[in-house]
């Protein structure tokens, strides 16, 4: 059993290496960076930068579902019939849209650390706690993302006529079923341009996690700069990598947008 798993693992690793866009056989750094500072392996920084790209993408991709979910719930709260619920949701978006992302990140990173430490101190443990930078970054980014996302979803909700809900009611559907089968599919289509904008912003905002020590693109380039003393080359490369991610996303988002609007008649 274990043997077959490790074999599968080996195959997966092999596939990952073959198709690695940076350091694989057909990777950018393998072809263009050979023998220079950007070579893969111990002599160059290609593999370190590739790891940074993976961290950046991982942070963004892990943030997205959490942010979307919180944003959806907050948007529901913002259009609730109950006034208190609306106010509570409004406070949330006001605070997290008004604070700099960097400050939100610090508040969550240090705040969680202090909170856990004080709780543990009450329980008798007296150790210094370092919370995971990835988790802290993910939480902070999803909070910021959700605050913006709720605004996008709210305006999309307002674009869906009341008759759609009534149609669901008249078919005897339960509320959540109406939401899931009737409202959300239309919501996705309406909110998609706004959400893809937010994804681009999220991709750029991931650069802040480098400040709390997560090894993303910018952190890795910073380390490379300190060692090689080639700041211009490496920071330009970081910008190029971010641009590449943005281009890839815009291709992917265009595809998703086509998919979402396939129900519309071709004109």
């Amino acid at each position: 059993m274990g043997g077959s798993f490790s074999a599968l693992d080996g195959v997966l690793t092999w596939i990952m290496t073959i198709f690695d866009p940076f350091c694989g056989p057909a990777g950018i750094f393998t072809w263009l960076g050979g023998g220079t500072l950007l070579a893969c392996g111990d002599t160059g920084w290609g593999d370190e930068l590739a790891a940074g790209v993976k961290v950046t993408v991982a942070v963004a991709i892990c943030t997205l579902p959490i942010g979307l979910l919180i944003g959806f719930v907050v948007a529901l709260g913002q259009q609730a019939e109950d006034r208190l619920l609306r106010i509570a949701a409004g406070i949330y978006t006001t605070i997290f849209r008004g604070m700099p992302e960097l400050l939100t990140l610090f508040i969550i990173y240090y705040g969680a650390q202090i909170l856990i430490q004080s709780v543990l101190a009450k329980l008798g443990y007296d150790e210094r706690i370092e919370i995971n930078a990835f988790v802290a970054g993910m939480i902070a980014l999803s909070v910021v993302f959700s605050a913006y996302c709720s605004e996008v979803l709210l305006s999309a909700f307002r674009a869906i006529p009341k008759g759609q809900y009534e149609a669901g009611d008249s078919l005897g559907m339960r509320r959540w079923r109406t939401m899931l089968l009737i409202v959300v599919p239309q919501l996705v289509k309406i909110a998609l341009p706004g959400l893809s904008n937010l994804w681009m912003i999220l991709l750029k905002d991931t650069s802040y996690v480098s400040i709390i020590g997560l090894a993303d693109i910018l952190r890795q380039t910073g380390i490379a700069v300190r060692v090689t003393k080639e700041p211009f080359l490496f920071y330009t490369l970081a910008c190029v990598l971010y641009l590449g991610l943005a281009m890839l996303s815009s291709i992917g988002l265009a595809y998703i947008e086509r998919w979402a609007s396939r129900s519309e008649a071709a004109r």
């Binding site: 750029k204 650069s207 693109i217 910018l218 700041p231 211009f232 970081a238 971010y242 281009m247």
Partner: peptide, 23 residues
């Protein structure tokens, strides 16, 4: 427009502050 909207402000800042120091 594409370049400056597609890259993080932090990366641009580093490029200018540290990168131009080379020149």
């Amino acid at each position: 427009v594409y370049i400056f909207r597609g890259t993080p402000l932090l990366a641009q800042l580093f490029l200018i502050y540290y990168g131009l120091g080379m020149f």
